[in-house]
Amino acid sequence: MKLSFLAKKILLNNNMKSKPLQAILYFFLVFSLATSCTTFSPSAQSNSLDEYEMYKEGKYVKYTNSELGISMLQYGAFRYAQNKKQYKKLVKGTKVYRGRNKVLYANQTNMYQFDVIDYFFDLSIGEKNSYPKGYFSKTILCNGKDKVTLVVSKLKMDKKSNADFLIEHFKCIK
């Protein structure tokens, strides 16, 4: 890692007299750099989003990832990010849910204020021990090696049925 090498060089070449303080600062700097970045998994390249009709209520979007063996049915009003560049553009100026190994991120804005995010969902490889209060999550293992977790944020309005819909339709491809 170039950043960690650079950080080490700066700290060690600094005229600090306390070695323990240098070690603590170095650890903190490396830990901060390693945990603050949002990354997308190479598996995101296998994403597919297709318009799909279901029920009598209208059109939905069907998401699939053949590499991970997952699928999910979604409402069509989401804005999607499938790589880091799209993600940065989508979350600019908002509080974000950080994570590593993202496969897909999507948010839905308020229909009257397009810069206000009502809620979002995040698909990532792996599983955390806990999630923020009020968030919904479901983890599945479909390809025999990668656990994939769907996290749906706390909803601004009483739209628990939206989260229930996403979680119910997050499945393994059969």
Rank of each mutant, 00 (worst) to 15 (best):
L90C: 06
V61M: 00
K85L: 08
V91A: 01
K95T: 13
T38W: 06
S124P: 06
L33K: 02
E67I: 06
A34T: 11
Y75Q: 14
V91P: 00
S43A: 15
M54D: 13
R100N: 13
T39I: 05
S18Q: 02
S124T: 14
S18F: 03
N13C: 07
K17F: 10
L21V: 00
D118F: 13
S18I: 03
K92R: 04
L123G: 11
N47H: 00
G134I: 01
E57D: 13
Q108I: 14
Y80H: 06
V91N: 02
F31G: 05
P42M: 05
N107F: 03
R79M: 07
G126H: 05
E67L: 07
T39M: 01
K85S: 11
Y26L: 14
Y80C: 01
D122K: 09
Q22N: 07
T109D: 14
T39D: 01
C37M: 15
Q86N: 04
Q108C: 10
F78N: 04
A81C: 09
N143T: 02
S71I: 10
K145V: 12
K88Q: 13
T109M: 12
E67N: 14
L29E: 04
N14F: 13
E53D: 12
L49K: 04
L33W: 07
I24M: 05
M54Q: 13
Y80Q: 03
A106K: 03
Y80M: 02
L73C: 04
S48E: 08
E53K: 14
F28K: 09
F27G: 06
V116M: 10
K85P: 01
T64A: 03
L73F: 05
G99P: 04
A81R: 07
S137I: 05
S124E: 12
Y135K: 03
K95S: 12
D122H: 10
Q113K: 15
L12C: 08
Y112C: 11
Y60D: 04
L21D: 05
N13F: 08
E127V: 12
L141N: 11
Y97R: 15
L21M: 03
L141E: 14
E51G: 06
Y119L: 04
N47V: 03
F114R: 11
Y112R: 15
E53G: 06
Q82P: 05
G93V: 00
Q113R: 15
M111Q: 12
P20C: 00
F120T: 04
F114M: 10
C142E: 07
K133R: 08
E51F: 09
L11G: 00
N15F: 07
G134V: 04
Q113Y: 15
F28L: 14
F40D: 00
T35S: 10
L90D: 14
Y87K: 04
L33V: 11
Q113N: 15
S32L: 11
S71P: 08
P20E: 00
S71E: 13
Y75A: 11
Y112F: 15
